[in-house]
Design a protein around this nucleic acid. Structure first.
Lengths: 214, 214
DNA sequence: ACATAAAATGAATATTTACTCATATTATTG
DNA sequence: CAATAATATGAGTAAATATTCATTTTATGT
């Protein structure tokens, strides 16, 4: 007889919201510790006790501000999504002002994304892939990607050399390609086989050829 | 005081190799059950007891032929790597014989890979990303990809219209792009936003433009 | 039929780990 | 300086689960 996976009532909200500065710092510290612990141990082996220890707070304190281990991972991930989104809009803003050519613009984008994902590649991989996330977070990720696709499509509209008949699809492909390849290379930089800067150049060449094809 | 993560002596080899047909069937059944259980529950919640139950064998039997839960996941993954590799070589073989154009050839490849990865997308995702794999398996994956890159490079040599100065890099990019985008789409087919066949066409267009660019 | 090896069993074990709560400490306010 | 609210503590709990092993069942070869 297998254990019946009892529908354990899991708390959804934290017991307390931080109101004083003291506790706001504490929350930040916990997230910092969690990032470090997950990075080293992965999600499953990144225990809440380890996180608390690393952050220098007691396990009880951790559970005052996070209802579950999962909530900690989700908080970290939301932060990463926000960062990525911010970077994308920053880029689009720059590109609209300084009228770069398509090639330079894409180079900038790819470079920025690779830089961003190279910071804590293992952590990002753990949060995005290894952690069993609740469905609504997956939905949020999908939504963020759609939104990014539209944003990029808006930028592409400024380049008359682009031949692609459907900018929405083009934007989608650009975002997906950059996200996928960037994550992959950041996670396993195969510098022996292909150096980083060449990888960037190749990716840009591919995107330019795709967008401005005859 | 945190539990010291004692260097637990984990068995590396199974207690028994299957010699009779009976036990060979058993091993297959266990792998089949494991695939189903992982697919439904994910790696962490896919317990060995559940796997055994699903396969219709006792938990003891399972541990006769697999030294650990991890070993089961690795066995499943190795099977998938072999399948992918087989499919790639099959494709290259066909392409060498029937002289298809570059566009058709790539379409065939992309289509095949997407088909392959669409079969059990969740299982593959779980095995490749969610499961914390030992380092040597990651190495094997990297190696398989390098090998694939070289194989594709060999095929690309047959197409004189390809302008790319370095076929090794081109092969690498093709393999990485197809693998990444294919996995991504198989895992989260955003059919609302972009239908499958258009997605394939776009990917092929991108690769052709990249390879045969002026 | 017999002996021996292979295969299968599943209750029991040992460990891990997310999470709680009664209590203590520290800040804020009037 | 109360009095009250916010914050921090950490030993303890309950549940889950990977793995073992002594025993039984089944096949094989002579």
């Amino acid at each position: 007889m297998i254990a019946p996976m009892a529908a354990r009532k899991q708390r959804l909200n934290p017991r307390k919201q931080p109101v004083q500065n003291r506790s706001k710092t504490t929350v930040d510290t916990i997230l910092l510790g969690a990032a470090q612990v997950f990075e080293v141990h992965g999600y499953a082996a990144g225990t809440t006790n380890r996180i608390a220890e690393r952050a220098g707070v007691s396990i009880g304190t951790l559970y005052q501000y996070f209802p579950s281990k999962e909530a900690i991972a989700v908080a970290l991930l939301e932060r990463h999504i926000a960062d990525t989104d911010h970077r994308l809009h920053e880029w689009v803003g720059h590109m609209v002002v300084e009228q770069h050519g398509l090639c330079d613009a894409l180079h900038d984008y790819v470079n920025g994304m690779l830089e961003m994902h190279s910071k804590q590649p293992r952590l990002q991989h753990i949060l995005l892939e290894e952690t069993p996330l609740p469905e609504n977070v997956h939905q949020a990720l999908l939504e963020a990607e759609r939104h990014a696709a539209k944003t990029v499509a808006g930028l592409l509209r400024l380049y008359p050399e682009i031949q692609h008949p459907c900018l929405e699809h083009a934007g989608f492909m650009v975002v997906q390609t950059v996200e996928s390849l960037t994550h992959r290379f950041a996670a396993h930089p195969d510098d022996q086989f292909i150096p980083r800067n060449i990888f960037i150049d190749e990716m840009v060449a591919m995107l330019v050829a795709y967008l401005a094809r005859v």
